[in-house]
């Protein structure tokens, strides 16, 4: 019973590592890396939900009876694209911030502008 859910728990651990990096790190680039880890772990979570024991990849082949659930795969394809779009935008923001503030450390930026 416990082992049945082990896969999910590993994903949750990964998720929380990413989440922690996002909120605790002061470096803007590292925050984005954390965000990425957070997102990928959610992807793995979805794909885990789509797995069927003994099933094969959802492409019709002769002789295969059991397929994995294709729907989570579709959703995650979309989510990956959304993720990379967010990353690209975030990174270009970081570049502009560096050009304007001369730093990518949260504390330095906050000090400069007294935000």
């Amino acid at each position: 019973m416990i082992l049945d859910l082990f896969n999910y728990w590993v994903v949750i651990a990964l998720m929380m590592i990413g989440f922690f990096i996002v909120i605790a790190r002061g470096n803007l680039v590292k925050k984005i890396i954390g965000l990425n880890i957070f997102q990928t772990s959610v992807f793995i979570f979805y794909i885990s939900a789509g797995k069927v024991n003994g099933g094969t990849a959802p492409i019709v082949v002769e002789g295969a009876k059991l397929y994995s659930n294709p729907l989570p795969h579709v959703l995650i394809l979309t989510a990956i694209v959304v993720g990379i779009a967010t990353t690209a935008l975030a990174l270009s923001l970081v570049i502009r911030i560096k050009a304007n503030y001369g730093s990518v450390e949260e504390s330095v930026i906050l000090k400069q502008d007294k935000l």
């Binding site: 996002v22 965000l35 959610v42 989570p72 989510a79 967010t86 923001l93 304007n100 930026i109 935000l115």
Partner: peptide
């Protein structure tokens, strides 16, 4: 204003966390 960049970044981080939370919920 250059602070617009910082605000946008801040919003991006918060917004993406929010969206990912929603994604977990939907999942």
């Amino acid at each position: 204003d250059r602070r617009a960049l910082w605000s946008s970044y801040q919003y991006l981080i918060v917004g993406t966390i929010g969206a990912t939370f929603i994604l977990i919920g939907i999942g």
